[in-house]
Each structure stands twice: as structure tokens, then as C-alpha cells.
């Protein structure tokens, strides 16, 4: 697969990196990444992946753009308020890089549709804002043998980890099961700094790029946390649990499951 002069110029700053080169750029062009959630995390993640030349990006979101989203969800503009986020996201990604193939899906992920959504993708980015969706994406990726990036943000702190089949723990190994819905503050209740979403969502894009081109070390077997208020990054080593309900030796979860969600998250 040859690149034309315009493509070579567009991607020149990364093609000159030894870890990428022409081969890495070809891998990016052939890659298919699914971003679940076109919000605070999904916006920077999808934006950088489109910019990097990822050939196909799927983006799922059921919501419409609200004025209160714009503080952190940089795929959407003021004129997009009221528009489905999936459509607005698609338009922004195509404006940045018209060569990207973008599939916009207006839907909530659930136990019934998640396997179908992830099937055609090489890497999945969890940019959702609630625990039921995070466990759903984890379980589906483990069951389907797909690599994915988990991330979560609240107030001034964020965390992320990467799951690759056969390498290190899954999200459920670490967090076992969703907390009771009433115990969890949502971004709506607790607040979040927009730039935090930018930091953590960009790190998710970084993981996707490294996974696709096969460079460096992924955040498998590790949770990277960021405390924006203190300016601290911490990397915590994690190991797989043999008795994990989904990726363990005797899994009790053999199909995706839906958990109840706190009403205020919806």
C-alpha cells in the first residue's frame, strides 16, 4: 500500500519516527478502532486517532450534545448542541481527516448488542462514564479476545489500563464488580476538569497507536493513575486473578451481562 504525496506530508512527523516508519503508518491505515462514548475521553482519543491516520474509526454514543458537555467534550461545538453526539463526532473527525472512514452509531451498549459492535474492530476504547458499561465492555472484550483500553476520570483524577488477551489482568480482575449504584458519584454530581479528560483520553489514543504499530510497552498488568491537582502520575503493578469471574480458570461469566445503573448517570 503506497501513500500519496499529501499523505506523506500529513503523517511526516510520525513516519520519521523509527518506531513507526512507513510500515507503522500502513498498520494505522489498516486498523479499525471502536470508541465507545463520544464524551470527555472518547473525544480526544478519537480525535488523535483520526489525526494519526487510523483507517477506520467506529464511534458509539446514544446521547445528544448538551451545553454542559462542551467544557470537556472537544469533538462537539456550540452549534452542535441538541445534535446526536455520534453525528457531531463523525463530522469533527472527518473535518480533521477526510480520509478516515468513520462509522457513527447512535446507541447505548448493552448485553444484547455489545458483541456485535466490537466484532469488526482490532482495538476498543472505553470512553464511557459509568461502571455497568465499563464491566460490559471488559467482559465482551475478554470473551471476544479483543484488546481494549479502560479509563475513568472524576474531579481531578483519572486512571487507565490496557487489556490484551493472554497478557495480564482484565478490568474485572482488578475491580471485581460494579459498586452499588447509589455509592457512586457521577461526573454530573462530582465535577470534572476538562483538561483531565484530555490527558487521559489522549493516553488511551497513545495505547491504541502503540498496540497497532507494535511499539513500546502497553499498560498491561498496570494501572496508571493521574492526580491532576498534585501533578502526580503513578503506575501500579497488577496481576491476573486465577479466580476472575470472566478471564479466570473457571469463569462464571460466559456472556455479557447488564448491571443496573444509577438513575443520575443515565
Amino acid at each position: 500500500m503506497a501513500f500519496n504525496a499529501e499523505q506523506l506530508a500529513r503523517y511526516s512527523r510520525q513516519i520519521i519516527l523509527k518506531e513507526l516508519g512507513i510500515k507503522g503508518q500502513q498498520k494505522l491505515k489498516q486498523a479499525r478502532v471502536l470508541v465507545v462514548g463520544a464524551g470527555g475521553l472518547g473525544s480526544p482519543a478519537a480525535f488523535y486517532l483520526a489525526a494519526a491516520g487510523v483507517g477506520h474509526i467506529g464511534i458509539i454514543d446514544a446521547d445528544e450534545v448538551d451545553l454542559s458537555n462542551l467544557q470537556r467534550q472537544i469533538l462537539h461545538g456550540t452549534d452542535d448542541v441538541g445534535r446526536p453526539k455520534a453525528d457531531s463526532a463523525r463530522a469533527s473527525l472527518l473535518a480533521l481527516n477526510p480520509e478516515t472512514e468513520v462509522r457513527a452509531l447512535r446507541a447505548f451498549v448493552d448485553a444484547g448488542n455489545i458483541m456485535g459492535f466490537i466484532r469488526d474492530y482490532d482495538f476498543i476504547i472505553d470512553g464511557t462514564d459509568n461502571f455497568p458499561a465499563k464491566f460490559l465492555i471488559n467482559d465482551a472484550c475478554v470473551l471476544a479476545g479483543k484488546a481494549f483500553s479502560h479509563a475513568g476520570i472524576l474531579r481531578f483524577t483519572g486512571q487507565l489500563m490496557t487489556y490484551v488477551p493472554g497478557q495480564g489482568p482484565c478490568y474485572r480482575c482488578v475491580f471485581r464488580e460494579p459498586p452499588p449504584p447509589e455509592a457512586v458519584p457521577s461526573c454530573r454530581q462530582a465535577g470534572v476538569i476538562g483538561a483531565l479528560a484530555g490527558v487521559v483520553g489522549s493516553l488511551q489514543a497513545m495505547e491504541a497507536v502503540k498496540y497497532i504499530v507494535g511499539a513500546g510497552a502497553l499498560l498491561t498488568g498496570a494501572l496508571l493513575t493521574y492526580n491532576g491537582l498534585q501533578g502526580d502520575f503513578r503506575k501500579i503493578a497488577l496481576s491476573r486473578r486465577a479466580d476472575c469471574d470472566v478471564c479466570g480458570e473457571h469463569p462464571s461469566i460466559t456472556a455479557p451481562v447488564d448491571y443496573a445503573q444509577a438513575v443520575c448517570d443515565a
Binding site: 503506497a2 501513500f3 506530508a9 503523517y11 512527523r13 520519521i16 516508519g21 512507513i22
Partner: peptide, 18 residues
């Protein structure tokens, strides 16, 4: 000759890749 650095190098890499 129609481009400037670093695209010069990138075009050379692309040609070598072939």
C-alpha cells in the same frame, strides 16, 4: 525537490519501502 524537510526524508523512505 518539491518538498522540504522532513517530508524529503519521508518521501525517500516511501520510495525505499517499494
Amino acid at each position: 525537490t518539491d518538498v522540504v524537510c522532513p517530508v524529503t526524508f519521508v518521501k525517500a523512505l516511501a520510495a525505499l519501502d517499494e
